[in-house]
Computed example of a mutant assay.
Amino acid sequence: MIKVKPGWRKGTKITFEGKGDERPGTLPADIIFAIDEKIHPLFKREGDNLELGVEVPLVQALTGCTISVPLLGGGDMTLSIDDIIYPGYEKFIPGQGMPKSKEDGRRGDLCLKFLVELPTELSDEQRIEVVSILQECF
């Protein structure tokens, strides 16, 4: 049986010396297993850190929001964001990434990468209002 430790990375090798094929007059071969990773439906691994894409409507991106963030071990974390969320905006949650295999109890970080949802349609009246509001900002 192989006990895979939390946080092991793709390519980690486990060797069982002398447990492989045997032939008369030679030493038994080694058996080597290599760890592979499954793709997770929500998280992307980057070393000991995890990345998570979070979609936020434009209004909330400009005015602030409270979001529920799923965590790797299960459960959710509620996060309030008062900043303006702009293209490329990221927020790090320390200690919510992958377990560090060589540091018991320690974990990497969770990086939230925000994607701002823009409207696909605006009426003429809405366009005029948006222009009026945004011209005051710049």
Results as ranks from 00 to 15, higher is better:
Phe138Pro: 00
Leu134Trp: 12
Val56Phe: 03
Glu46Phe: 06
Ser80Ala: 13
Asp76Tyr: 12
Phe114Ser: 03
Asp36Glu: 15
Leu62Phe: 07
Val56Ala: 00
Pro57Ile: 04
Gly20Glu: 07
Glu46Gly: 05
Pro99Ala: 15
Gly18Cys: 08
Thr26Gly: 01
Glu117Phe: 09
Glu136Ser: 15
Glu55Trp: 07
Gly95Glu: 12
Thr12Gln: 11
Cys65Ser: 04
Asp109Cys: 05
Ile2His: 08
Leu58Cys: 08
Ile67Trp: 01
Leu122Met: 15
His40Tyr: 06
Val59Leu: 13
Ile128Arg: 15
Arg107His: 11
Ile84Ser: 04
Lys113Leu: 05
Arg23Asp: 09
Glu46Ser: 12
Asn49Pro: 03
Ala29Gly: 11
Lys13Phe: 09
Lys13Ile: 13
Asp82Phe: 08
Glu129His: 14
Tyr89Phe: 07
Gln96Lys: 12
Pro70Thr: 02
Val54Asp: 03
Leu122Glu: 12
Lys113Tyr: 01
Arg127Asp: 12
Phe33Glu: 06
Gly97Ile: 00
Glu17Lys: 14
Phe114Ala: 03
Glu103Gly: 07
Lys19Thr: 11
Phe92Pro: 04
Ile84Phe: 06
Gly97Phe: 02
Gly108Trp: 03
Pro99Lys: 10
Gly20Leu: 09
Leu71Asp: 06
Ile2Gln: 07
Gly47Cys: 05
Lys3Phe: 14
Phe114Leu: 07
Leu50Ser: 00
